[in-house]
Amino acid sequence: MNLSEFMNTEIVAGNTLWRITGLFGLLLVGFTAGKLLKFILSRRAEQLREPRPIIAATLGAIGRAAPFLAFALGLAAGTSLLVLNGASELVGTCVAIVVTLAISWTAICLVDAPKAWMTQRAGQTESKLDDMLAPIVSKSLIATIVVLTVVQIAQILSGKEITSILAGLGIGGLAFALAAQDTIKNLFGSMVLLADRPFEVGDRIVVDSTDGTVETVGMRSTRVRTLTGHLVTIPNGELANKSIENVTKRPHIRRIFNITITYDTPPAKVAEAKAILEEIMKDHEGMDPEFPPRVFFNEFQNSALNLFCIYWYHPALWWDYLALTERINMQILERFNEAGIDFAFPTQTVHLAGDPSRPLEVGVKGS
């Protein structure tokens, strides 16, 4: 038996050896070519990651998709060599689904290219809105690709026109919308947050009892890292309807405090204490001329004379503000001690009968 006769030997269902060999050969060639392309593109993407991030992301995406796509193309070419007889429709449907999945996977991988472009643009601007948009846009593109893939597979399996499928999906979509109304609510909530921009990624916000830094804003929820280190996930639908305090956007930090001195302090010493406080807080490092410090002798308390003090620190840098606060407190303590001005604390005074400095009339009046 020569080689031609050997290769034309029937193996199964009318398929000769050369047809079977061609199928597996094309599958092997496609898979090997895909793996080789992935290796080459991945190496090149690593080299271009710093100077050309967008090109690197595109090459890396193509590299990830190459094995599956090459395998699907090899399968489509290989099955065309077979004698399928009555199974041609079934095999054709399966091959069409595999090719559709491979193309969809390629499109999903290529979403990394616009994501890299948006990330690069976000790094060139001061606004952090782009940081919020990049993940949302990429997830939206992936969701769109998945929906189109499902519609395409449904068309392949049913053999109906896409308009009929879309009409059926419309009825099913209504039922799905009722079942997934919370998810839809969160999706619209994310759109409201992007439109109103009450905060950006990296801002410190306070929502109800949650106080922390915004880490990510997704399509469904926003993740906040609290000051204690815990990660809190807040649905966007709820977040859009809540009062949000953006601590990062405050223009300054205001401090209000009271200095209490004893009741036996002479008026001259009270005036001196007020002057000392004004001098200590005057022209401090975080002062804005439009917000000068203020000191007032404003109240006679139960056990003390009260000096009301207020100052503002610009900009709102928390640790710098605390350092200034510590210096002011130390200076107040030192200057009051030097001046002999006593700080007050809650006390009670008991007046005794017979005290010549505070005479009391104790007795019963006669009739």
Score class of each variant (00 low, 15 high):
residue 216 T to P: 03
residue 216 T to I: 07
residue 217 V to K: 01
residue 217 V to E: 02
residue 219 M to C: 04
residue 221 S to D: 15
residue 222 T to V: 05
residue 224 V to R: 01
residue 225 R to G: 00
residue 226 T to E: 09
residue 227 L to P: 02
residue 227 L to T: 07
residue 227 L to H: 05
residue 228 T to H: 07
residue 229 G to T: 05
residue 231 L to H: 07
residue 232 V to M: 07
residue 232 V to N: 01
residue 233 T to P: 00
residue 234 I to A: 03
residue 234 I to G: 02
residue 235 P to Y: 06
residue 236 N to R: 01
residue 237 G to C: 02
residue 238 E to N: 04
residue 240 A to Q: 10
residue 240 A to W: 10
residue 240 A to G: 05
residue 240 A to L: 05
residue 240 A to F: 11
residue 242 K to D: 15
residue 243 S to E: 15
residue 243 S to Y: 12
residue 244 I to C: 09
residue 244 I to L: 10
residue 247 V to N: 02
residue 248 T to Q: 04
residue 248 T to P: 08
residue 248 T to H: 04
residue 250 R to N: 11
residue 252 H to G: 04
residue 252 H to M: 13
residue 254 R to C: 15
residue 255 R to H: 12
residue 255 R to K: 14
residue 256 I to S: 13
residue 257 F to A: 09
residue 259 I to A: 07
residue 261 I to L: 11
residue 266 P to I: 07
residue 268 A to D: 14
residue 268 A to Q: 13
residue 269 K to Q: 15
residue 269 K to A: 14
residue 269 K to L: 14
residue 270 V to F: 01
residue 270 V to D: 02
residue 272 E to C: 00
residue 272 E to A: 03
residue 273 A to Y: 05
residue 277 L to K: 03
residue 278 E to M: 07
residue 278 E to I: 00
residue 279 E to L: 00
residue 281 M to K: 00
residue 281 M to L: 12
residue 282 K to W: 11
residue 282 K to E: 14
residue 284 H to T: 09
residue 284 H to A: 08
residue 284 H to W: 08
residue 284 H to K: 06
residue 285 E to H: 04
residue 285 E to K: 06
residue 286 G to S: 03
residue 287 M to T: 08
residue 288 D to F: 01
residue 288 D to I: 02
residue 289 P to G: 00
residue 290 E to S: 09
residue 290 E to G: 09
residue 292 P to F: 03
residue 292 P to H: 04
residue 292 P to T: 08
residue 293 P to S: 06
residue 293 P to H: 06
residue 293 P to I: 06
residue 295 V to M: 06
residue 295 V to R: 02
residue 296 F to S: 11
residue 296 F to G: 02
residue 297 F to P: 01
residue 297 F to Q: 13
residue 297 F to R: 12
residue 298 N to L: 11
residue 298 N to E: 10
residue 299 E to I: 07
residue 299 E to T: 11
residue 299 E to S: 10
residue 300 F to M: 12
residue 301 Q to K: 07
residue 301 Q to T: 09
residue 303 S to K: 02
residue 303 S to D: 12
residue 303 S to R: 02
residue 304 A to L: 05
residue 306 N to Q: 14
residue 307 L to G: 07
residue 307 L to N: 07
residue 307 L to R: 08
residue 309 C to A: 09
residue 309 C to R: 04
residue 309 C to V: 14
residue 309 C to M: 10
residue 309 C to L: 11
residue 310 I to S: 13
residue 310 I to K: 09
residue 311 Y to V: 07
residue 314 H to M: 13
residue 314 H to I: 08
residue 315 P to H: 03
residue 315 P to G: 02
residue 315 P to A: 01
